[in-house]
């Protein structure tokens, strides 16, 4: 993947009846960084993700990649989208799901590994690999979902509250995985947990008043930075 890639959201708007959830959003995301997307409940984080994933049609505006100054449309396989509640095809085994995914994405997967290597990479034990996904635990389903989303190396990875309900070991494994991945794609990570965002993310972006706003850390220490974020979010809630 090109190193100078940027993901640009250009005047994106979305309303539900009279409520303007996304107001003319303009923002540029750069590769090599994990962006922590913070917002109050109902601020529109999931709406933003759904628009970017084209599950929801935006009212106006666009989003695209910019590679070496050249604009390029976003294709479906450019995006990986990991939901907080993992959804996996319950009737397949973990191995079958991976085989199916690799089969149909053969052309777009660079440096293909064996299925077991992928399982090893995600720390899924050999005993679980041939079980039906319906019998997987929540954490294992989450790992499978994440794995399928990163095998094809999408240019942008959207993560909607992905670590909230995982046990500490899996959560730590996933955090490490994301840190390793960030050199290869743009990661936008939505969360409610401020400490997690501060620990994992390189940039903090607030979604407030329907707009995206980067919170500059500059010379603030962690506590002041935290206060600044909370203050900004509080203002949004008082509207």
């Amino acid at each position: 993947m090109n190193n100078n890639i940027k993901f640009i959201i250009d005047h994106l708007s979305k309303s539900f009846e009279k409520k303007e959830v996304l107001k003319d959003i303009d923002f540029t995301f750069e590769k090599g960084k994990i962006y922590g997307l913070l917002g109050r409940n109902g601020a529109g984080k999931t709406t933003l993700f759904n628009c970017l994933n084209r599950d929801l049609k935006a009212d106006s505006g666009d989003f695209f990649f910019e590679e070496n100054g050249q604009r390029r449309e976003v294709k479906a396989d450019d995006i990986g989208y990991v939901l907080s509640t993992p959804t996996v095809p319950e009737f397949l085994t973990g191995r079958e799901f991976l085989k199916f995914f690799i089969d149909i994405n053969e052309k777009s997967i660079t440096d293909k590994k064996s299925i077991d290597e992928y399982f090893d990479y995600m720390s899924i034990s050999p005993a679980d690999r041939d079980k039906l996904l319906k019998d997987y635990s929540h954490g294992m389903k989450n790992k499978m979902q994440m794995l399928v989303n990163i095998i094809a190396k999408p240019n942008i990875l959207l993560l909607d509250e992905p670590l909230t309900s995982l046990d500490v070991v899996v959560a730590e494994e996933m955090k490490q995985l994301l840190r390793n991945l960030k050199q290869e794609c743009i990661i936008i990570f939505s969360t409610h947990i401020l400490d997690l965002a501060l620990d994992l993310c390189d940039e903090i972006v607030l979604l407030s008043h329907g707009e995206l706003e980067l919170v500059e850390k500059v010379s603030l220490d962690n506590k002041d930075f935290k206060d600044k974020i909370i203050e900004a979010l509080r203002e949004d809630g008082n509207e």
Partner: peptide, 18 residues
């Protein structure tokens, strides 16, 4: 219920050709 419900959340599944 048993297939598309989960797979439709994956972008690769929604490519026109697929």
């Amino acid at each position: 219920v048993n297939c598309d419900h989960s797979l439709l959340t994956y972008p690769f599944y929604k490519q026109p050709g697929m």
